[in-house]
Simulated scan of single mutants.
Amino acid sequence: MKDIHSIKKYLILGAIPLMLSCSSHYTLVKSNRTEYNMNSTQPVDSTLIKTYLPYKVKMDQEMNTVIGHADVLMEKLDKKDDKPVAENLLRNFFSDALFHEALKYDPTIDFAMPSTNGGIRVALPKGDIKLSNVFEVMPFENEMMVYVLSPADVQNLLEYIAKTGGQPVAGLRMKIVDDKPTEVMINGKPLDPTKNYKILTSDYVAEGGDNVQSFKNPIEKKIMGIRMRDALITYIKENQAAGKTINPKLDGRITKD
C-alpha cells in the first residue's frame, strides 16, 4: 500500500511540468477587419435555414395565435389636419388596459401615464388581435412602475402632458389651454394641489424617457414586476374569455383649445 501511494505521488509530480510544458504562449501580431454585407444578394445558406426553420415555424404559430377581437381600428394618429391630437383610441385602450391590470395589484393607484406617445409603436387592427400585434405595439421589455409623487412633481407631469399636446393617460381628465393644464380631475375629483399622488408609469418614462423629468425624486417607488406587454396580453385574453371585444371610446379625457 505504501508503494502505491509513492507511485501516485510521483505520477502527480511528474504530470505538473508536463502540463506546463504543453501550455501554449501566443502573441497577437496582426489583425484584419473584413465587412460582410448581409443582404438579398448573398447566397442562401441551406444549413443555417435547416437549423432555425423548426424554431421559426413554432414561433410563427405562436405569434399568429388570435387572443382577442377589436371592434374598431386603433390607429397611431399623432396629427389630424396637421394639428396634434390630444386623445385617440389607441392611447385610451393602451392606458386603460394597463391601469386596469395594475389596479389588481395596487388598488390605491390614482392615475396612469404608462407611456409617451412615441412609446406606442403601431396601430392595432380591427377584427382579430394576434399575439404578434401586441408585440408590434409594445416591442420593448418595459416594466410597470408605481411612483408616489409630491404635489410639485405631479404638477410638473401635468404640465408636461399639456405642453406636449396630450399623452396616454387613464384615471385623469384635463383641458389644455395655451399649453397649460386646466380643470384637472383625478379619479373623478378635482386635483388637490397639496396631495401626493400615486401614479402608474413605465421604467422608461420614469427614467427620463422622452424628456419626462417628473419621476426623478419620488417619495416612493415600486417595481410591479410585470412587463407592460404581458399586462396587455392578459387584458385582451381576459376580455376574450369573458366574451367581450376591445372597443375603446373617445371620452374627452384630454381636450385642447
Rank of each mutant, 00 (worst) to 15 (best):
I4P: 03
K9Q: 04
L11S: 06
G14S: 10
L18Y: 01
L20S: 10
C22H: 08
S23N: 07
S24K: 13
H25W: 08
H25E: 14
Y26I: 14
K30E: 15
S31W: 06
S31F: 13
R33T: 15
T34S: 07
N39G: 14
S40T: 11
T41W: 04
T41V: 06
V44Q: 09
D45K: 02
K50T: 09
K50Y: 03
K50D: 15
K50W: 01
T51D: 08
Y55H: 15
K58S: 15
D60P: 05
D60E: 15
D60W: 12
E62Q: 13
N64R: 14
V66C: 08
D71P: 02
L73G: 05
K76S: 09
D78Q: 01
K83P: 00
K83L: 10
N88C: 03
L89V: 02
R91E: 10
N92I: 11
F94A: 03
F99G: 02
H100T: 13
A102L: 00
A102R: 06
P107A: 11
P107V: 02
D110T: 08
F111G: 04
F111T: 06
A112M: 00
A112W: 00
M113G: 05
P114I: 08
P114Y: 00
S115P: 01
N117Y: 09
N117D: 05
G118R: 10
I120E: 03
R121W: 02
L124K: 00
L124D: 01
L124F: 01
K126T: 07
K126G: 08
G127A: 07
G127V: 07
D128Y: 06
I129F: 01
I129L: 15
K130C: 12
K130T: 15
F135I: 04
E143W: 06
M144V: 02
V148K: 13
S150H: 12
P151Y: 03
A152V: 12
D153S: 11
Q155G: 12
L157S: 07
I161V: 15
A162V: 09
T164C: 05
G165K: 11
G166K: 14
Q167N: 04
G171Y: 06
G171A: 14
L172Q: 10
R173Y: 04
I176C: 09
V177S: 11
D178G: 07
T182R: 02
E183K: 15
M185F: 08
I186H: 11
L191G: 12
L191C: 10
P193V: 12
P193H: 06
P193A: 09
Y197H: 13
Y197L: 12
Y197P: 05
I199K: 01
L200K: 03
T201A: 04
T201S: 05
A206Y: 09
A206L: 11
D210K: 11
N211Y: 15
N211W: 04
F215H: 07
F215G: 10
K216G: 06
P218Q: 12
E220G: 11
K221Y: 13
K221D: 05
K222E: 14
G225I: 03
I226G: 01
M228V: 02
A231H: 01
L232C: 10
T234F: 03
T234E: 05
T234A: 14
Q240D: 08
Q240Y: 03
A241G: 07
A242Q: 12
K244V: 13
T245C: 11
I246L: 14
I246T: 03
D251L: 14
I254Q: 04
T255Y: 00
T255S: 13
K256N: 08
K256D: 05
D257C: 02
